[in-house]
Design a protein around this nucleic acid. Sequence first.
RNA 1: GGAAGUUUAGCUCAGCUGGGAGAGCAUCUGCCCUACAAGCAGAGGGUCAUAGGUUCGAGCCCUAUAACUUCCACCA
Length: 880
Amino acid sequence: MKKELAKTYSPKDFEDRIYREWEENNYFYADIDPKKKPYSIVMPPPNITGQLHMGHALDCTLQDILIRFKRMQGYCALWLPGTDHAALATEAKIVSAMKEEGVTKYDLGRDGFMERAWAWNDKYGGRIKEQQRKMGTSCDWSRDRFTMDEGCSKAVQKVFIDLYEKGLIYRGERIINWCPNCKTSISDIETEYEEQDGFFWHINYPLADGTGAVEIATTRPETLLGDSAIAVHPDDERYKDIVGKYVKLPLTDREIPIIADEYVDMEFGTGVVKITPAHDPNDFEVGKRHDLPVIHMMNDDATIKQGVGGKYAGMDRYEARKAMVADLEAAGLLVKTEPHKHNVGTCQRCGTTVEPTASLQWFVKMKELAQPAIDVVKSGELRFIPQRFENGYLYWMENIRDWCISRQIWWGHRIPAYYCQNKECGHTEITLEHIDKCPKCGAAVLQDEDTLDTWFSSALWPFSTLGWPEKTADYEYFYPTSTLVTGYDIITFWVSRMIFSGLEHTGKKPFSDVLIHGLVRDEQGRKMSKSLGNGVDPLDIIDRFGADALRLTLVTGNAPGNDMRWTETKVTNSRNFANKLWNASRYILLNLPEDMAGAKLPDELPIEDKWVLSLYNATVKTVTANLESYELGVAVQNLCDFIRDIYCDWYIELTKPRIAQGGATALAAQNVLVYIMQGILKLLHPFMPFITEEIWQSMPTDGEGNEKSIMISAWPEYDEKLNYPAEQESFGKIVDAIGAIRVQRSEMNVPPSKKVTMLVETEDKELFNSAAPFFAALAGAGEFTVTEKAEASADSVTVVTSDARIFIPLGELVDKQKELARLEKERSSVQKDIDFLSAKLSNPGFLAKAPAAQIENERAKLKKAQEQMEKILISIDKMK
RNA sequence: GGAAGUUUAGCUCAGCUGGGAGAGCAUCUGCCCUACAAGCAGAGGGUCAUAGGUUCGAGCCCUAUAACUUCCACCA
């Protein structure tokens, strides 16, 4: 039963309905079929409590285009959706929600909090999945996963234990980035640096023996409380004789040694550095080399510690800084204060200035894991599109540092480490099973309080979601996945970690291609952000323009890796294009024979049909090729150009006189119209799934069973039989001639409705005669005569193409002088062409070195120009 | 400090392996022609950032420069 197509394009009226139909018919389900080739994409999991934003919309659109394309091409296409527990982001949300009730997580305790978090998750989580549905995403919801579901959690535990057993995970005291607000460690890449105005304080540290003082410079005077030495360069002549002596640490009663270490830059500052091993990564290393004590002088909320802090204990770090600078000044130890710009690390999540702190944490040893991940990209086995993103990836991998994976929060995968409470034993057991007693000594054990970095679980996403470590059917069939689509902003966070994890745990690369896209920026080119309030809500756009318009906007002009600007006029254009397609199909449907079943191309086709079929066929080829090479923006551009410029603007107009005429020519036109429309709908379906489906279901079908949904119909194939180069060229001449006539009519202000007489002088009488109805319909020809030799009246406008002179007697409308001037102008423009081409063709270098086809091409162009020139000259002659 | 990207029409951007510069919007002109005014037919508008180089031929390849953007590293 064919659907009636509504009179106006109103996406709201059918998008949701169509999505429901797809879901009800299970079209998204990837049914493993050994006869088919698999194609799989795992969706970058959005935060479980997140909201759909433009970045997601772009990501979604690109993936859906690929998946729908491959599905139609006959692959068994799986797009696996899911969500991420987003440890820190989610916990922060929950905590702040609790804060409004006046409850802290410590009030509830760990178990109470987790209960609450899951409840919160059930209530607010998953909203994004409904929003993704609005986009038309054809992902397989039956395989929906969550990073904290049972299977993914099992994979996480297994990976942790495996890595531990291989010695690639260790626990140790290192300098990590501590966020005093989130009260957890964060990894290096979760730390963002921003330039801040600060000061360089020069402070005198008096020598303990009273023989003077050493001047140091610091940007963080409060950390003085944690100093365990001061250091100079071993070759620094200035300080050679004080090495080994002690200084009195100001504001305290401690004495600390002066050491020599190559780390110190003699040129910088005073050449003397205070060493604070607990609060600076370099100092920590120096401290290890010189066996210095690590003095923690701050609490986890960045207040000064009791004991080491003296009178400053309990103060906030900045408060303490102020107080200490004042006290140093009072003591006469402050030499000077210089303004100084420096980069300060801040927490990616909350923006708080991080405190580098020596802390006992879990780390992944990265060097060994990185090597295969480097090799797989260098060898080209795994490629980035565009390739330039490989640089950043490789640089990061080659300079990788150990990854701090423990987090002092509760929402996440708890570290499966148990510490024996018997000090004599001190055993650490890493195990999947929950244990209470130490397997070595039987004493009580305590599980590590920490959870894992959220990226630790996302790193396993391409295989944990397919059932790994079990050898499930999904895993066997779909892994490694085919393409990963994501933004360049998370290459290091996520893509790189999936690559080394996949290689290490499955022995295979997790995917073959990484398609990188850019950011969607606002109209002024700024990042869309909450704080600027410049974000555009995709749901609002869908509501106003439809999901298809949104998708088309996001993919049009989209080049891999490049950012794009969002403007509402772009969406309007997209919507207008959809409207055009809608109306084109209405035209077809209004002009079909009642009983038409499917499109059958007749054996005998008129030239204009061959012309359009040939161009359509070429479009199939380029669209397919561009989709295959991930040039989605180019593909859609080619397609839309064909639909608008060839199919709608020309071909549909060409069919009007034929349909009016009726009979065989009408029937051929009707079949070609439907044939190409169905092809267009299929080619366009990955980009604009809803409108193409809605139109598809109202088109005559071929009864082969695909009529139910365009989703499951076959991708159009390039067909050598539809290639008509000769007809394409010949009829192109008619199109050119009609265009040239239109220009003249427009310039002479002849209204389109006015029929005018035309006299065509051409050697190809047959061609122009056969096109007479088109000149009438499209160029406003009244009387239309084709002849080999014409004598034009003096009051004619002459339209010259390379194959014909067309005389249009316009009587008093023709200003002889103006017409002559116009012809002169045309003459000089054609003369320029001739000059250019003959210069090129008389260049010996060109003739000797250019490819033969190129030379032939230029010769043909010259010939054409010369023919045109001849005709222009005759016309000018006649005018005079 | 290191690296990458961008620079093409008034605006937003295409331009795939080098062969006489493209689209949409905006502007201007003319059209309500029974698919579409969310439209149709036309027009104008560009030293392809600058300077060199390679080539028969450069928007495209090479070198340098400038401006903008981004990423990475971070010396107290």
